[in-house]
Design a protein around this nucleic acid. Sequence first.
DNA 1: TGACTAAAGTGTCCCGCATACACTATCTTG
DNA 2: CAAGATAGTGTATGCGGGACACTTTAGTCA
Lengths: 234, 234
Amino acid sequence: MSPAAVSLNGFARHAVAVDVVLFTIQDDVLKVLLVRRQRAPFRGAWALPGGFVGPEESVDAAALRELQEETSIGNVYLEQLYTFGDTERDPRGRVLSVAYYALVNWQRMQLRARREVVSDAEWFPVRRLPGLAFDHRKIVDYALERLRNKLNYTTIAFQLLQEEFTLTELQGAYEVILGQRLDKRNFRRKMLQLGILRAMNRFKASGRQRPARLYTFTETKVVKLQEKGIIVPF
Amino acid sequence: MSPAAVSLNGFARHAVAVDVVLFTIQDDVLKVLLVRRQRAPFRGAWALPGGFVGPEESVDAAALRELQEETSIGNVYLEQLYTFGDTERDPRGRVLSVAYYALVNWQRMQLRARREVVSDAEWFPVRRLPGLAFDHRKIVDYALERLRNKLNYTTIAFQLLQEEFTLTELQGAYEVILGQRLDKRNFRRKMLQLGILRAMNRFKASGRQRPARLYTFTETKVVKLQEKGIIVPF
DNA sequence: TGACTAAAGTGTCCCGCATACACTATCTTG
DNA sequence: CAAGATAGTGTATGCGGGACACTTTAGTCA
C-alpha cells in the first residue's frame, strides 16, 4: 500500500481496540454508558462501547468514531486514558486496548441505536455497575480515578454541565464525581476567585424557591489560570 | 494458535512499537538515552530506544525488554506514558507507539552494546537534544512534562539516586528536573517532615568540606504519605 | 396578604503550608 | 591555624483551604 523504500514486513501485527468510558451526570448520579455484547466472547454481558481500530485510521479517530456512534452530539471532551496490553485480556487472543474517557452533558445527549455487534446501550451508576466483560471494570475504575484527580487541577467538570449553569449545579457535579459533600461557601469562594466564571443577568427559576443566578464558563482568563497551575482543557 | 471458539479474523492488524524515554542524572544534568538508527527510515538519526511488540508479548513486557537491552540493571522504575496512534508518524506505514518513561541511577547503570537495528547509544542532555527520528521529540517533551508534574506529588525522584544519598544530592535532582534553583532550607524542611527519610549515621566525605549526612528512603510511612495525597511508586 | 417553605447567597476565624531570607558549623587542605 | 567549601539551621509573613450559621428571596398556599 505504501510505496516506501522500506516495509514493515516481518513484524508482528496486533489487533487494536479502543474502549471509551463515557461519563455523564443524570439525576445527581455519575453514570457510565455500557453496551450489551451481541457476540462472543462475553455474549450478553455488559461492556464499554468500543471497537477495533481500522487499518488506516488513527487511534484518536477510532475513539471519536466509537463515541459518536453512541452520542448524537459533537464537540465532546475526549481524552486518552491508558493502554492495556496484557496478552490474556481477551480470550480470542492478543488484543491491545487503548482506553479513553469522555464527558458529556446529559441534556445535550441523545442516545442512538447502536449498530453492529452491540444491540443495547444503557447508563449505569458508577457505584452500581453490573459485571463487565474483559477487563473493563478495571478500565472504569481507572477512568474514575483519573477524573477525580483532574477535577482538582483542571476545569473538566464544565463538560458535564450545560452552557449556562448555577453554582449549585456546578457544586453538585463536583460532589457526585468525588463522592462527598462540599461546603457551599468554600466552594463558591474558590470557584469565583478563579476568575473563569462570568455571571449572567439571567436566573434559573427552578420551582418555588429563590431563583439561582446563571453563570457561563469563560476562557478569557486561561493564561491567569495556567499561572496558577490549573490546566484548561481547550 | 488460540483454540477459542471465536477468532479475531477479519479485523485489521497493526504494527505496535514501544519507545522508552530513559532518564538519568549525570554531572548535575538531566539526560536521555538515545540510540542511532542503523536502518531506514531515519537511518543514521538519533531515536528513542524501542522496538516492536512480539506476537505473544505483553506491551509492558516489551517495554521492559527494550529497557533491559539498554541497561544492565533490574528493578528500574518504568511507567507507561501515552500511546501515539497517528497514521502518519512512521513513513513505512501505520505504526502505533506505546511510549514509556523510566528513571535510572547513573552510578548503578552500565550501558551495554545494543544488538540488532541500532549500533550506538549515547546520553544527551534533555535541553540539548539532536534532531530525533519520527515524533520522538514530542515523546521526550511529554515525558519531561509528566516527570516534572510527578515530582510534586510522588517520590519518583528517589529512583535517580543511589540507595544512600545526601539531602543536597536529593535537592540537586529536583533542581535539575525542574530546571530551577530551590531554597535549601525550605527544601530540607519539607522533605524531612514528610517522614519518608531515615537519617543514617554515615556521612559522605566528598572532598575537603564538611561531610554530609546520608539518608535512605523508607517505605514505613507510605500510608501516612498517601493520606497526604502523595503517591509512592512502589 | 401574610406565613411558610425551600433553596440561594454571604463572611470570619484558624491552621497549615509555601516562601523569603543569612548566618553558623564542620571538615579538609596547605 | 587560617582559608576554603559545603553542611546545616530558624523565623516571620502571606495565602489558601477548611470549618462553621444565618440572612435573603421567590413561590405557594391558606
